[in-house]
Amino acid sequence: MAASAVAYKDRQFLAVIGDEDSVTGLLLAGIGHVTDPPAAQRNFLVVDAKTETSTIEKAFENFTQERKDIAVLLINQHIAERIRHSVDSFADAFPAVLEIPSKDHPYDPEKDSVLKRVRRLFGE
């Protein structure tokens, strides 16, 4: 079963992939964390129009698969759209992937991968 204690015992950080404003705001709330050097890793990624999709993809992989200390991954919905396939195929319980609205892109419940599952389950 997915809910074994080891799976989330050490998970205490939030991670964020988002545009500059979302990341800034969330960092202000105090979620930013940089691991100790030499392999310093940030738990946030700022995405703008110039960011390659492969970079986003890599960060998503890193936050979901490699790092074991992240409990929740926040990702802007318009960025999730760019890597929709990875987001939709990620079905594990940990970390929880949460699509959040951004300032410029209003939230659309139709695109959310979890809400889509909810809808499908209730046959809507």
């Binding site: 015992k9 205490q12 950080f13 979620i31 930013g32 964390h33 940030r42 738990n43 946030f44 929740v72």
Partner: peptide, 18 residues
């Protein structure tokens, strides 16, 4: 202030416990 904030983020203040 985005850049300044990103650079000064070191340790997470806001954490979660399961």
């Amino acid at each position: 202030i985005g850049y300044q904030i990103q650079e000064s983020a070191k340790q997470a203040r806001f954490r979660v416990r399961a």
